[in-house]
Design a protein around this nucleic acid. Structure first.
Length: 646
RNA sequence: GCCGACGUAGCUCAGCUGGUAGAGCACUUCACUCGUAAUGAAGGGGUCCGGGGUUCGAGUCCCCGCGUCGGCUCCA
């Protein structure tokens, strides 16, 4: 058998040779360092015979500690097995399910006997036992056995989840055998691959315990999931933990209140209360949003938040969204807070007869909607119940869809470019439960795909994730701790126009049904600002900075001059403060730095004489003297152009 | 909604096995008038999330509720 090595050379091995043989043939050092081999992109155990390629020479790479993601995934998977080993020993009667490696670590899901609750205070004991198994250097031994035999074995051990998994493998993959891995006293159903032995795990840490539904289905039993991570060195682990710590420092839930942007109250769960500094950012974004909408042919509207429930019966929200809505009785009528703006915008559309000449009609609204999101899902500004959307609805003909979708994506690009965002794009296609003809779906999906390919954007296809009324394009961003949140969405809707019997008069003088496009780009102001806070780590570019300049007098006798400096800047339209406190200049600077104010103007005897100010930039240090009016002009210009921060 | 953890001064947190609350920062006052990341001193400030229970006695133990955090599910 011939294999091509990463350096381009060819390695010839006798038939039946294993991965370990391959590593040994290359060199004794590599043989010792080898964890696994990667043949044509597939990672395989060292002990397994190498499969010959059919035709072309397969590539072969020996996986060692230096192989990056492949190597880490391997030992993290190994560590998950060791975790299960320890838990099985310490908690008799526990049922195991699955334990894969994931980004940055691994987890294992357990079903503990009734009455046993795991918490992170149990980690020490478990870790201790895990270390014993690692020190013992127990080899991972693979065996392929008939599925029926494996099933019998796990059934005898009352490992119900494993039995279910085997049944599924047999049913879905028509497999007649499955693989088992044994390390020390523990045998798991597992497709592998694994490292040679447990002592190749150099350092690991159990991190958290959480609930997770069996097979991710809320109808199933909730299992106990233990998260952990593993590395090849303590240094790498420490660096990883340090990164997590740094990410936490960017967390908008920490920075927001710290910088006086917003607060959260127990009395208004899911409803952030905006402080003056936060409103500055909110209003700047609103101004941007308004400008961008206006140049793109949107007409701004404003609609109530409270409606007779009849509206939602027509729209379908009563049937499909009721449990997420708030209702109240007023004078014997049931009223509901709108969870979306579309029914309201439809009222506006219906306000007059529409001609094909009027289309497309684009309504935009900074629309306030309320959704009763489940308590366990609320998350600072990123998941709220009180949602202010940068919403818009476009009513158009079917022929106009491609152009309008493209305009929406252009618009999104323009918005995101202001912040240097590069959202991930996702196309959601027809779900199983849907309405409308296949032709309609074909056309709608084609329109969206065309728009995306035309723009050369990379996108992921989420099969079957579309709404029941149409496909959609979603734009996602990641928060400081790696969680993905949807910002923008562009959705085609054929259903609402139907339910509300919307029509326009065509060139043929017949009534036709328009199509609606639901579109939000920032998503919600709450979520967008949350992402912004983390994106900038609280260090906002000048145009968004709640306080742009602070004037710092050296001593009390300079307050008068400082006051005139402030005046000049304020008159020029700069958001400026004067620190009049009787404090040392070092103290005033420190406080301004902690507040992340972009510019500081120090004024003392020298500046008073020359009529200037000493400029200091946030994180940039002393920038020397500036003429105050020049500086004011510069700041105004920087804010006007909405320049990025450096 | 589900699983687990947590909830003490405005903020960050301490408070051992139950004996009636403490630090730093912030705040107020006084002194200092200062040149690029914390001047010093004194003082004020607490329904220990809420409600029940156990106990002679609960911040501490138990139950229920609310909120928050980490996940899971959901996310038109």
């Amino acid at each position: 058998m011939d294999f091509q090595l990463p350096d381009g050379t060819t390695l010839s091995l006798p038939g039946g040779a294993t991965g370990a043989d391959a590593a040994a043939a290359i060199g004794p050092g590599l043989a010792r360092a080898a964890l696994a081999v990667k043949v044509d992109g597939e990672v395989r155990d060292l002990a397994r015979p190498l499969a010959g390629g059919d035709g072309a020479t397969p590539t072969l790479e020996v996986i060692t500690e230096r192989s990056g993601a492949d190597a880490l995934a391997l030992i993290r998977h190994d560590t998950a097995h060791v975790l299960a080993t320890a838990v099985m020993e310490l908690y008799p009667g526990v049922k195991i399910s699955i334990g894969p490696p994931i980004e940055d670590g691994f987890y294992y899901d357990f079903d503990f006997p009734d009455g046993t609750h795991l918490s992170d205070s149990d980690f020490e004991r478990i870790e201790q036992r895990m270390r014993e198994h690692i020190a013992a250097g127990e080899p991972f031994v693979r065996e392929d056995i008939p599925a029926a035999q494996a099933r019998q074995r796990f059934a005898a051990e009352h490992q119900d989840y494993k039995v279910q998994l085997i049944d599924d493998i047999v049913r879905d993959q028509y497999a007649d055998s499955v693989s088992l891995y044994t390390n020390g006293p523990f045998t798991d159903l597992c497709r592998g691959p694994h490292g040679p032995a447990t002592d190749r795990i150099k350092t690991f840490k159990l991190q958290s315990v959480a609930g997770a539904y069996w097979r991710g289905d809320a109808n199933n039993k909730m299992l106990t999931r233990v998260y952990g991570t593993a590395f090849f060195s303590g240094k790498e682990l420490d660096e990883h933990l340090e990164r997590l710590e740094e990410a936490r420092a960017r967390d908008h839930r920490r920075l927001g209140p710290q910088l006086g942007l917003f607060m959260l109250s127990e009395l208004a769960p899911g409803g952030p209360l905006w402080l003056p500094n936060g409103m500055v950012i909110w209003n700047e974004l609103t101004a941007l949003w308004r400008e961008e909408n206006a140049v793109r042919g949107y007409r701004e509207v404003k609609t109530p938040i409270l409606y007779d429930v009849e509206l939602f019966k027509t729209s379908g929200h009563w049937e499909g969204f009721r449990e997420h809505m708030y209702f109240t009785e007023v004078e014997g009528r049931t009223m509901g807070l709108k969870p979306m703006n579309c029914p309201a915008h439809i009222q506006l559309f219906k306000n007059e007869r529409r001609s094909y000449r009027d289309l497309p009609i684009r309504f935009s609204e900074q629309g306030l909607v309320h959704r009763h999101e489940p308590g366990g899902t609320l998350h600072g500004l990123l998941r709220v119940r009180h949602i202010t959307q940068d919403d818009a609805h476009i009513f158009c003909t079917e022929e106009q869809i491609p152009a309008e979708v493209n305009r929406c994506l252009d618009f999104g690009q323009a918005i995101y470019d202001h912040f240097g965002f590069e959202p991930r794009v996702e196309l959601s296609t027809r779900p199983d439960k849907r309405i409308g003809s296949e032709e309609m779906w074909d056309r709608a999906e084609t329109a969206l795909i065309d728009a995306l390919t035309q723009r050369h954007v990379e996108y992921r296809v989420a099969e079957g994730e579309g709404t029941f009324y149409g496909p959609k394009i979603d734009l996602h961003m990641t928060d400081s701790i790696g969680r993905s949140w949807q910002l923008g969405t562009v959705q085609l809707d054929y259903v609402m126009p139907e339910r509300f019997a919307l029509t326009y008069t065509g060139a043929d003088n017949e009534e036709h049904r328009p199509v609606m496009i639901h579109r939000a780009l920032m998503g919600s102001f709450e979520r967008f600002i949350g992402i912004l806070i983390e994106h900038y780590a609280g260090e906002f570019p000048l145009w968004l900075a709640p306080v742009q300049v602070t004037v710092l007098p050296i001593a009390d006798r300079h307050v008068g001059y400082g006051s005139s400096v402030r005046e000049l800047l304020a008159n020029a339209g700069v958001r400026v403060e004067l620190d009049e406190r009787t404090e040392s200049i070092a103290r005033k600077i420190r406080d301004a730095e902690l507040r992340k104010i972009p510019y500081m103007l120090v004024v003392g005897d020298r500046e008073l004489e020359t009529g200037q100010a000493s400029l200091r930039e946030h994180r940039g240090g002393d920038r020397g003297s500036v003429a105050v009016d020049d500086f004011a002009a510069r700041v105004v210009e920087e804010a006007r152009t909405r320049a990025h921060s450096e």
